[in-house]
Design a protein around this nucleic acid. Structure first.
Length: 418
RNA sequence: GGGAGAGUGUCCCGAGCGGCAAAGGGGGCGGACUGUAAAUCCGCUGGCUAAGCCUUCGUAGGUUCGAGUCCUACCUCUCCCA
């Protein structure tokens, strides 16, 4: 089906990772004949990557699986500048200590997908602070800056948007694209990296790097971008006001991660199976044929496979089992998030409002708890709470010795006396 | 430096004759229908010890019985002129 000759591009194409490629034939030939080194840049504004980073990371995964060499470039330097793409406001500038902490935390996530040298693989983790922090401004302007036309830079979407909306774009941020281009050239020099991948919004920045490489070193570089993933109903993926879907287990437990995938819209299941799991396409095609209610089976597989990739098979199976007990049997699955409560408090009785708002944080305040009770959204041991003066005591303990508190149908917490 | 505008419910956008816990969206949360989906419909979307009280409209003062609204100073941003 796909016209590519290399495994790498074939897999990416079949699985729906490719939005745009520069010089597809030439890149294909390179990937077929030798080892290709490619990179993706990540910023380190948060302590964990989130769902939005997963797609590019999967591209690195397949790159390595098909015998090539991936580089995860951490923007230790550029994070101090801030990419204006897709933002109409300036990013906060982070201190170096915070950036380094974030970087260390993110490193763990990558090791789930990529084999670094310490694990006997060839993946590289680079940090652009290594070369950006020591740049000399005048030298940089003379050697690199001369190759950038401000006229052209002004025509880039990321810049144009800011100007049109009359939002400020600082000179600092204006330089981001130059630094990113420079990164590409530097990685090419250091590691013979010839391809930069990224989201579709990165196309302009990547192409800049290609141009710069040619002008400075006569290097032949390539760009490959992935489509912007939106859900079937058009929303940006993993961007809810409730918070980002984090990849670090300490920010989002495997069970929550599993739930995220479980709740995928029907129309997205097949696409997500291709992008976010490593299941063979033939198997995915079989699941694609499922209709109506049966799609839920596919969703469970999607959830388990995606979670296994991220948190390991055991955690994924455990999450699946917890979900099965909770939703299909209505039982008090042991592995639901558990909050400890002092036994003495329970003996005296704990008000429902306090239990929900303060102990578990399922709702944000007592007032919110009252509202939810009025709307019929709170349950204790699966019985709807009707009285906001209700008190929880040790009588509410189930046979398992816990009290199950629920908000809506999906969010459950166990209270456990200690 | 001179001139003209703007900053509103701590998610976002946005209305607001001196009586305002403040219109309307979006988003979010809950309920109904389903399949832990989508679409649709309904309710909620400052806090509290809750028929009451407290805190909110860039910041600090002032005028007034009463200020998001009027006055003064300051901060931040945008535009025009130099």
């Amino acid at each position: 089906m796909s016209a590519y000759k290399s495994d790498f591009l074939n897999i990416l194409a079949e699985r729906g990772f490719i939005h745009q490629v520069s010089e597809p034939e030439a890149l294909d030939a390179r990937a077929k004949d030798g080892t290709l080194t490619a990179y993706i840049g990540y910023d380190c504004t948060a302590a964990s990557l989130h769902i939005g980073h997963l797609l590019p990371t999967m591209m690195l995964y397949w790159l390595q699986q098909t015998g090539h060499r991936p580089i995860a470039l951490m923007g230790g330097g550029t994070t101090r500048v801030g990419d204006p793409s897709g933002k109409d406001e300036s990013r906060k500038v982070l201190t170096e200590e915070v950036i380094n902490e974030n970087l260390a935390s993110i490193r763990k996530t990558f090791s789930k997908f990529l084999k670094f040298e310490s694990d006997g693989g060839n993946a590289i983790m680079a940090n652009n602070a290594d070369w950006l922090n020591t740049l000399n401004y005048i030298d940089f302007l003379r050697d690199v800056g001369r190759h950038f036309s401000v006229n052209r830079m002004l025509s880039f979407d990321s810049v144009k948007l800011r100007l049109e909306r009359q939002h400020e774009l600082s000179f600092l941020e204006f330089n981001y694209m130059i630094l990113q281009a420079y990164d590409f050239v530097e990685l090419n020099k250091r590691y013979d990296c010839a391809l930069q991948m990224g989201g579709s919004d990165q196309w302009g920045n990547i192409v800049n790097g290609i141009d710069l490489g040619r002008r400075l070193n006569n290097a032949h570089l390539f760009a490959l971008t992935a489509p912007l993933i939106t859900t079937a109903s058009g929303a940006k993926m993993g961007k809810t006001a409730a918070g980002a879907v984090w990849l670090n287990a300490d920010l989002l437990a495997p069970y929550g991660y599993w739930q995220f995938w479980r709740n995928t819209e029907d129309g997205d299941v097949t696409r997500f199976l291709k992008l976010f799991t490593t299941m063979p396409l033939s198997e995915i095609a079989r699941l694609d044929a499922l209709q109506g209610n049966e799609i839920n089976e596919a969703k469970k597989i999607l959830a388990t496979e995606a979670t296994a990739l991220m948190h390991g098979r055991a955690a994924a199976d455990e999450a699946a089992e917890t979900a099965r007990k909770t939703f299909e049997e209505g039982a008090h699955a042991e592995n639901l998030p558990t909050i400890e409560i002092a036994r003495a408090d329970l003996e005296q009785g704990v008000g429902v409002l306090v239990a929900f708002a303060e102990k578990t944080g399922l709702v944000s305040s007592n007032g919110d708890a009252r509202r939810q009770i009025k709307a019929g959204g709170l349950k204790v041991n699966d019985a709807t709470v009707t009285d906001d003066k209700m008190t929880l005591t040790s009588k509410e303990l189930t046979r398992e010795g816990v009290i199950k508190l629920s908000l809506g149908k999906k969010k459950h917490v166990l209270l456990k006396p200690v």
